[in-house]
């Protein structure tokens, strides 16, 4: 059988060949690669610009002094560089914020996702999201001028004007929408068949919400918690305004404290000469902060992956 198909015809053009060049494809591809590269190079640039002054800092100050001594006075005549008070301030304020935000955020998420009528949800969800849109400087003055003066002072008469408690409480309020909104998204994504299955066994609303929906949404909820904690660790304005700027090695939240972020903000906006050891200390603290949030993110990715595996 000899059939003269176009492709086998000697000397004939293959009808399957590309006839028109597609420039658009290459252009779009280039633009998209560029968009992805910008964020990659920015991150890389930040790491380098923090790393170099930090390495210079550690050439003069030992790791041991930085990490294990308890006095932070880089701007004094006799400077000391023990970062523990800043870590302690960050830790105390973050713990307070998380203690406020996790129960209230998760509670609002469960209410919105499982209990609220469609009407109530329509009003409440945008209201919650407005809370996320308030500038942190406003939260800072709210902590300093309202929470400390009218709420905390009557309860703890010897509270300092600048204190960790008010900053932590208000920071907790600030991250409620983050935790509530992301947790609610995770719970709303739980298939309604699981709820039906629980109700059909005679489960109450509470048993369905807490024993089926929350465990099923756990990976999203854990991610929301970790993101909330990361925001608390990185939050600057509220602590700068309301928690005071004294590096204070204490667990007492009624006293003023300085966090890593508020040191960076305060020292960076002051008149520290560029290239001095005080100047480099800003970057050393920044590097520590970067490592902590980086580790937090790694943990959250691990946790999310772990729970996902269990539930798929």
């Amino acid at each position: 059988m000899t059939t003269a198909t176009a492709s086998s015809a000697p000397g004939g053009l293959n009808p399957l060949r590309q006839t028109k060049p597609r420039y658009g494809e290459a252009v779009i591809r280039g633009i998209l690669v560029l968009a992805a590269a910008v964020s990659l190079f920015t991150t890389f640039g930040i790491v380098i610009s923090v790393l170099i002054p930090s390495l210079e800092f550690f050439a003069e100050i030992s790791f041991t002094e930085f990490l294990f001594t308890t006095t932070w006075t880089p701007l004094f005549a006799n400077p000391q560089y023990g970062v523990l008070p800043l870590l302690m301030g960050t830790f105390v304020i973050t713990v307070i914020a998380v203690l406020v935000a996790i129960p209230l955020g998760l509670g609002s998420a469960i209410y919105l996702s499982e209990y609220a009528s469609p009407k109530a949800r329509k009003v409440l969800k945008p209201t919650l999201e407005v809370l996320a849109g308030i500038p942190t400087v406003v939260f800072g003055f709210f902590a300093l001028e309202f929470i400390t003066v009218y709420v905390l002072k009557p309860i703890f008469p010897d509270i300092q004007v600048f204190n960790a408690l008010s900053a932590g409480l208000v920071m907790g309020i600030m991250i409620i929408p983050t935790i509530a909104s992301l947790s609610e998204d995770a719970m709303a994504a739980v298939p309604s068949g699981l709820r039906d299955g629980a109700y059909a066994l005679g489960a109450t609303k509470r048993q369905t919400a807490l024993r089926v929906v929350v465990p099923a949404a756990l990976s999203g909820i854990v991610a929301a918690f970790v993101l909330g904690v990361s925001r608390a660790i990185g939050e600057t304005m509220i602590v700068t305004i309301a928690a005071g700027l004294q590096p204070n090695m204490t667990l007492n939240p009624l006293q003023g404290m300085q966090t890593m972020t508020s040191y960076i903000a305060a020292a960076g906006s002051g008149d520290v000469p560029t290239g001095s050891i005080e100047y480099k200390s800003i970057f050393a603290v920044g590097l520590l902060l970067f490592i902590i949030t980086f580790v937090m993110n790694m943990i959250s990715i691990r946790l999310v992956r772990k729970y996902r595996q269990a539930y798929q």
Binding site: P191, G193, L194, G197, V212, P215, A216, A310
Partner: peptide, 13 residues
């Protein structure tokens, strides 16, 4: 009065 649904809705447990 129990119920079995169209899609097997096992719990993530």
């Amino acid at each position: 009065i129990g119920m079995v649904f169209q899609k097997p809705n096992v719990f993530p447990k």
